[in-house]
């Protein structure tokens, strides 16, 4: 299951989604909005996406993860729009019979999502400036990943 939403992410629903009697492990990764980047304070973030392509790419990632690992359940949801500090902007949940595959698949999914899915964040700095984050494009204040 993949999705793009403007609503706060419901982790209990995601865990129910990937729950399976055949699973011996569930890994849930949450990417959360951070207040400090390279010493500069962020007030909030705004996320924009190419919605159709983002959903298609997330579905491709799920399909590829299911080819590579024996997944019982898989859920990837990204939040877009305005996200306050300290809230989850992305969730990846996977369930597998044994834990190693769950950790590996979860890490691969979030790493690959950050490389290929057309979603962008804008830092609204506490000093009043705002800046789109485009790795490789705006190196001077590019956040560490």
């Amino acid at each position: 299951m993949v999705g793009i939403t403007t609503q706060p992410l419901e982790t209990s629903a995601l865990l129910r989604e990937v729950g399976s009697d055949n699973a011996g492990a569930v890994v849930l990764f949450l990417g959360t909005t951070r207040s400090l980047t390279n010493g500069r304070r962020t007030a909030s973030l705004d996320y924009e996406c190419h919605a159709d392509m983002a959903r298609d790419k997330l579905a491709e990632l799920e399909a590829e993860a299911r080819r590579r690992w024996s997944l019982e359940g898989c859920a990837i949801v990204h939040r877009v729009g305005h996200v306050p500090i300290g809230e989850a902007s992305v969730a990846v949940a996977v369930s597998t019979p044994h834990r190693q595959a769950a950790f590996e698949a979860g890490q691969w999914l979030i790493d690959t999502l950050k490389q290929v899915v057309p979603i962008w964040k804008k830092e609204n700095w506490a000093d009043g400036e705002s800046q789109w984050v485009h790795p490789g494009l705006n190196a001077p204040s590019e956040p560490s990943k």
Binding site: Y47, L113, Q115, I119, W120, K121
Partner: peptide, 28 residues
């Protein structure tokens, strides 16, 4: 990107199509 797929520099662009311009992504 065309139809959700990134396209190579030498790919021919179909007439009338919508092309998405994708700056470096920063989701997560």
């Amino acid at each position: 990107a065309i139809d959700s797929q990134y396209v190579a520099e030498e790919s021919v662009v179909p007439d009338g199509i919508e092309v998405a311009c994708i700056p470096p992504v920063s989701g997560g």
